[in-house]
Amino acid sequence: MQTVAAAVTMVRDDAFFLKAWLRHYGRMLGRENCYIINHGRGAEVTKLAEGCNVIGIPGDPHANFDMKRWRLLNGQVAGLRSYYRHVIVGDVDELVVLDPAAGNLLDFLAQQPLRRVLTPLGLELIHRPDRETAAVEDSILGPRRHLRHAPHYSKPCVVSLGTKIARGGHFTQASKLFTPEPLYLFHLKYCDFAHYVGAMDRRNKVTEELGVGVKQAAIGRHWFAEARGDDRAVFDAFAALPQAEAFDFARVRRRMHRSWAPRGETGFWHFERPEPDRQHILPERFYGLF
């Protein structure tokens, strides 16, 4: 049984993203090393995650949902670090991926020094309905091959150090930044228009049950109908992004390191996060990873 790495997430009803999460981490790490917090004890989550370590918790709506969630995830990471060299933690629509040209993720992590927090470069997989019509039920990379750099999702999410992770997973209290060149975090929220609409409908329903607005809740704005905007316009805007000539992010990583600094008096550290201004084409070597 491998003890190099475990993966941890929390999920509520997002079967499409959970299937991708399981295809990736289940195959790469082994299902016995996957830890899934089943928010609301959904029967479909339990069935899909057979062979994984599933923790069922109550699913009552709560205005401080994100604070409670990351308090629990911080505890899980802290505990699992006693048994694994590295613990990967994040949302169910976020997958840590190693460039296949550098080998496989498990072997890569086995060679990494301990007492670090690794920050993969964030890439958002975007659906271009004008170019991509294939279904994504069994495989996402290949049918979807357009990306944009997503600084907001360059998350410090591979942990082998005792540290606190901020709500949302965007910051930690680790004062040194490690950004291995072949390591990426793929954010899947926009990877398919139909699944995006379904996920947003479910999240809007959750926040509607709270009976409070964006300013009264510790939940991301994107969960609220009032901040949602027009779904089709969101995807149409992807086509307007200029296309980069190369799949190369060396300058981005250098900028992350140059701007690395304390986040005010919070105890957390961060880097500048400029808005993405172009799209990239995923190299074929990534196709079929999940």
Results as ranks from 00 to 15, higher is better:
A110M: 01
T46S: 14
F247W: 14
K47P: 00
A246W: 06
K189E: 01
E245T: 14
C34F: 07
A199C: 02
P180R: 01
D107R: 10
E209D: 03
N64H: 10
A250I: 08
D231E: 12
Q216V: 07
S259A: 05
K155R: 09
K189V: 02
H39W: 15
A5D: 01
V197P: 03
F186W: 00
H86N: 07
H257Y: 02
W269G: 08
C191H: 07
V54C: 13
H86Q: 05
A101L: 05
R85M: 07
V8Q: 03
I140T: 03
P113A: 12
H146G: 10
V77G: 04
H39K: 03
R148I: 07
I281H: 09
A20N: 09
V11W: 09
A5E: 02
F238S: 07
P180D: 07
P156W: 02
P276M: 12
K68P: 00
P113V: 11
R81I: 03
A150F: 14
N64P: 06
P283S: 06
E50Y: 05
G30Y: 05
A7G: 00
A134S: 13
T266F: 15
L241W: 12
P129C: 08
D138I: 01
M1N: 00
N104W: 04
I165H: 03
K47I: 07
A261Q: 11
T9D: 00
S259G: 01
R116A: 12
G162E: 14
S175V: 00
R12W: 08
C52P: 07
H127L: 11
K176T: 14
G168P: 12
D130K: 10
D13M: 06
R254F: 04
D60L: 10
A43G: 08
D138Q: 13
E284P: 05
C52Q: 04
G26E: 04
L188E: 00
L98Q: 01
F224G: 09
I281M: 11
F65L: 13
E208Q: 13
V206I: 13
R115I: 06
P242H: 09
G162A: 12
L105R: 02
I55W: 10
S259T: 14
G40S: 07
D277A: 15
G26Q: 02
N104C: 14
A218C: 12
G40L: 12
N74Y: 05
V252K: 02
R115N: 15
E209N: 06
G40P: 09
M256F: 14
E275M: 11
C34S: 01
R116V: 08
I37K: 04
L241E: 10
R254M: 05
I165C: 07
G56E: 14
D13G: 05
A135R: 10
L289K: 00
G288F: 09
D13T: 11
G267F: 10
I36G: 04
T172C: 13
T163E: 11
L188S: 01
S154F: 00
